[in-house]
Design a protein around this nucleic acid. Sequence first.
RNA 1: GCUCGUAUAGUGUAGUGGCCCAUCAUGAAGGACUCUCAUUCCUUCGACCCGGAUUCAAAUUCCGGUACGAGCACCA
Length: 493
Amino acid sequence: MEAEAPHLLEKREKKERRQGLPELKNAVKGKVVLRFAPNPNGPLSFGHARGIVINGYYAKEWDGELILRFDDTDTVVKPPLPEAYNQIPEEAEWLLGFKPHRIVIASEQMPHYYEHAVSMLERGFGYVCQCSGESFKEYRVSKSECPCRVNDIELNLELWTKMTNGTFVPGDAVVRVKTAMDLKNPALRDWPALRIQNTEEHPHPRKSIGSKYRVWPLLDFQSAVEDYIQGVTHIIRGKDLMDSTRKQTLLYQHFGWDYPETLYWGRVKVHEWGGFSTSQMRRDIEDGLFTGWDDPRLPTLTALRNRGITAKALRDFWVELGVTQKDISVPLSTLYSHNTKCIDDDAPRLSFIRHPEKLHLKGEHPASVSVEVHPNHPSRGMRTFDVTSKDIWVEHEDSVKTEVRLKGFTNIENVGGSAKIGSIERNDRRPIIHWLPDTSVIPATLIVAEDGEVRRLEGLIESHTYPAGTMVQLERIGYARIIDNSTLIFTHS
RNA sequence: GCUCGUAUAGUGUAGUGGCCCAUCAUGAAGGACUCUCAUUCCUUCGACCCGGAUUCAAAUUCCGGUACGAGCACCA
């Protein structure tokens, strides 16, 4: 047997678990081009992070390029927010750890879209349709062709001119891609490629664009043409855009182009957040329901960052979820767990006393007490407290316990605000509490965003010299980020 | 209604016919360490939607259900 079928004797190695994301199909090192294309109608949110992280991961893995593209072709329903054009690239860079290789703004590419629209009309696979949305819907449902479908090229070009020169107003006409009205999938039947927007009343917020164009491409057309122009090789996006892929593939066939490899992910809901849309957040902020895009209750990148969620935690989180097409619902604890791994080793320990109660010490004790800055890193030094005043602060909740141990200091017996010093050595299993001497405290506020509310916990923070932005661990409470001398924001426990 | 898609432990995820009485993470429970309810470490718990078919062999293929989601916008 050994001679005849040696492979049967070979011990097959246990398959190794795949690390990170699955391999990209048809990818060539150095030639991969990916893109992430948000609508700049607000800053990036948690969900956008998936697009950036996943596309960025592959761009890096394949020595390719990541394009950040602003799909800002709607000035009426989802008008762009001017600040977003600066904020989004900055947020993307923070999240990725590198700058996107190219930035493309769709509203600056309008000449290309017009050129392709005209080409489509000239080559006969597009037509100007003057049917109303309602009546076209009937044609689509009944698989019948609308009267405009038979327009000859000259007529289509004439109508196109009427679209662009202002003869037609919104609703009068759209440009459609000629597919087939008997396609199985109704979504694909002669889909609309460009429409007219009233840019006098709704000018594009970018000054250089403003009311310059009346005819604007719709997503499926704009995105398809732009992907071709930019040489995108792989598209990874939500599965809600599956029919978009099919529509665009039909357009690519008309033009004689090859459609990129496409991958999809499903819907993600965060249990604690429910549904937030950028448009809704924008309205709520304008209505004063939130203080701004960085309101800690909001799932925006800027809010998460401000709260102390690290870019790496977000990256690890999204890579762990992968690119499955399943619709999933994840608890925030998963993200927090990644974040803890990212920050704990660096976070200096500090005490914060919520609802402080003063205790007066009675008895003999050392004049000063030292505790570690970080218990796993003695080399980072000690925090030393002067306790000669004998007045200390503990949390209200701890002040009602009689037998406790002040961390790093002494056992006490606490009765009615007066704490009798017990053993300096730890000699029993009594609970250990955190405390601060009144000589080294600063009144401070801990901002806690939980369950859709923001609570401001007044208390005392241990005096320190850490700069704003430092991630610290508040002993027995959790991680927090320093905002300023007297303000911290709670990250998670 | 038409079309498309997905279904593995509580939550995510690996797995493309035999390495799988199913991986890893998270979670929960217990324990070790620790002068934090932190970190780290150890142990335990727990899953292939249902029904058929193909096959010597199916989480993996096929058919039929069921459930959930998405598209059918002159939004992205």
